[in-house]
Amino acid sequence: MSEFEPKVVAFVCNWCTYAGADLTGTSRIKYASNVKIIRFPCTGRIDFMLLLKSFANGADGIIVSGCHPNDCHYTSGNFHAKRRWIMFKELMDFMGIDMNRITFSWVSAAEGARWAEVVNSTVTRVRELGPYVSYKQMVNTSIEEEVTHA
């Protein structure tokens, strides 16, 4: 059997982390290809429900990354993201989601090497944790239950 290759979704902002990941490319720093990037204008735009949707649909790990505090292109979008994240994290934890599968980080447009580190460390960690099936199962069973009850 081939080794487990985790699927990792990265939600990043356009101005810092997306540009930082571009710099990783221009600097030709290699990293694991398990990560695929979705570009948002700002971390403030990220609806954390998308994290749940991702897990429910087969993601094994998630990275959320934007500008460092005070560096937001839109002044304060990343602060709102962080505040929302603090709340949402608790909620996800309560729901039984394995928080080790999520990396929340700041990567600036100048930190090409850091992006590679963030990706690699996340992929390594998620690889050790194995495929994320429990949440998917939970969601699917509850849907089934609803269907049978109806």
Partner: peptide
């Protein structure tokens, strides 16, 4: 400026970007 912070926040999903 299109940051979308309001979009992620709106509870009735009335704003979009």
């Amino acid at each position: 400026q299109g940051c979308g912070t309001c979009v992620a926040l709106c509870r009735s999903k009335s704003i979009d970007l």
